[in-house]
C-alpha cells in the first residue's frame, strides 16, 4: 500500500443522456505507484475525462454519477469521504489541470489572486506570505517578471503562459498526485513541448505522481512510465510504456500506434482505424471494438473478453490472447 498513491478499483461512472444512461467509465481498475506517470490514452469520447472527473469528485449529480467501485487515495476511499474532508484533499493533496487554460481562470480576478487562493485555503497562511509564495511559483513555472504577471488579468496572457499559471496553481500546495487532462491539446506545438518538459521536470523535482490524459501517443512516449489504453469506457490494454510500444497486443492499440505519424519516416498514407467509436448507449455484450477489428472472430460478437495478465507485465482484453492464460 505504501508504494501506491492512487488505486482505482472497478470504477463505474454513468452519465444520463437523451439517448439513455451511458457507462462512460465501465469497470475500470488501475493504480498509480508513487513517483510514476501513468498515461491514459484513447479516442475522443472513450471516457478519459470521466475517469479524471470521478477521481476529483467533479461529476455533477444532475448529469451523472459514480455507481460502483472504490477510489483509494493513499489508502482512503475518496468516495466515502465527507464533503469537507474531500475539500481538504482537493487542491492540496490532489490537484487537477484542465484542457483549456483560457477558460479555467476567472476573467475578473488577477492571476496573483488566483494563485494565492489554494494557499490561503489549505495552508492557512497570511496574505503576505501567500503573495511571496505565489511569486515564487510564478518563477518556478518559468515565467519571468513575476510582479507584473501577479497583477495582470487572464486576458492579458497567452495560452501557454496561462497553462503555466494553471500548473503553478495546481502545484501551490505541493500535491502528491497531479491529474492533467489533456494539458497541451489547446496549445500550439512548440508550446506543447515546453509545457510537457515543465510538467516532467517538476514531477521529478517534487517526487509527485501524475495521471496524464492524452490522445497524443507522442506525448505518451515522452513522459509515461505506464500506459492505460481505454476504449468505449473500458480498459482494453495496459502495460509499461516500453513493452506496450514495442509489442502492442490489442488490435486497437496496434492500430493507434500505426496511426501515429512517425517523423523522418514518410508513410504513403497515414493509417487510420476504419469505422467509428460505438454509441455508448446501445452497447451489447461483445468486444466493443469488434465492429472495427480486422481480426474479429465469432466469439468476439457474443461475449466480452476479460482483461488478463500477460507474462511481461502487460494486460490485455482480447479473445486473441485468452488461450494464452486459460490453456
Amino acid at each position: 500500500m505504501g508504494n501506491t498513491v492512487l488505486d482505482v478499483k472497478n470504477l463505474l461512472t454513468q452519465y444520463y443522456t437523451n439517448g439513455g444512461v451511458i457507462k462512460a467509465v465501465d469497470d475500470v481498475s488501475f493504480s498509480i505507484p508513487k513517483g510514476q506517470t501513468v498515461c491514459l490514452v484513447g479516442e475522443s469520447g472513450c471516457g478519459k475525462s470521466a475517469v479524471a472527473m470521478s477521481i476529483m469528485g467533479l461529476i455533477d449529480g444532475g448529469s451523472g454519477g459514480i455507481k460502483n467501485g472504490e477510489i483509494l487515495f493513499e489508502g482512503k476511499d475518496l468516495l466515502k469521504l465527507k464533503k469537507h474532508e474531500l475539500r481538504q484533499l482537493r487542491g492540496n493533496d490532489i490537484s487537477m489541470i484542465f484542457q483549456e487554460p483560457m477558460t479555467s481562470l476567472n476573467p475578473v480576478l488577477t492571476i496573483g489572486g488566483q494563485i494565492m487562493e489554494p494557499l490561503m485555503e489549505h495552508e492557512l497562511i497570511s496574505k503576505k506570505e501567500a503573495k511571496k509564495r505565489a511569486l515564487e511559483l510564478i518563477e518556478l513555472v518559468g515565467i519571468g517578471r513575476a510582479e507584473e504577471i501577479f497583477n495582470s488579468y487572464p486576458h492579458q496572457l497567452s495560452g501557454g503562459m496561462l497553462q503555466r499559471i494553471m500548473i503553478a496553481i495546481a502545484l501551490a500546495c505541493s500535491p502528491n498526485l497531479l491529474i492533467a487532462d489533456e494539458p497541451t491539446t489547446a496549445l500550439d506545438v512548440t508550446i506543447q513541448a515546453q509545457i510537457l518538459d515543465l510538467l516532467r521536470s517538476l514531477k521529478e523535482q517534487r517526487d509527485m505522481s501524475m495521471l496524464l490524459i492524452t490522445h497524443d501517443l507522442g506525448v505518451v512516449a515522452e513522459v509515461a512510465d505506464y500506459v492505460i489504453v481505454m476504449y468505449a469506457g473500458k480498459v482494453i490494454e495496459e502495460g509499461p510504456v516500453v513493452e506496450l510500444f514495442k509489442n502492442p497486443k490489442h488490435p486497437y492499440t496496434k492500430g493507434l500506434l500505426k496511426a501515429k505519424p512517425v517523423i523522418n519516416q514518410r508513410q504513403e498514407e497515414l493509417y487510420t482505424i476504419a469505422g467509428q467509436v460505438p454509441n455508448l448507449a446501445t452497447l451489447t455484450p461483445s468486444c466493443y471494438f469488434s465492429e472495427r477489428c480486422e481480426q474479429c472472430m465469432a466469439i468476439c460478437k457474443e461475449q466480452m473478453p476479460k482483461i488478463n495478465d500477460l507474462d511481461n507485465g502487460q494486460r490485455v482484453a482480447c479473445w486473441l490472447y485468452e488461450e494464452v492464460t486459460t490453456v
Binding site: M56, L58, R87, R90, S95, F98, T103, N106, P107
Partner: peptide, 12 residues
C-alpha cells in the same frame, strides 16, 4: 470551467 476549477481546488 473556472468554477469547476474552484471546486477542484477545494475552495470553500
Amino acid at each position: 470551467q473556472f468554477m469547476q476549477a474552484t471546486e477542484a481546488l477545494g475552495l470553500r
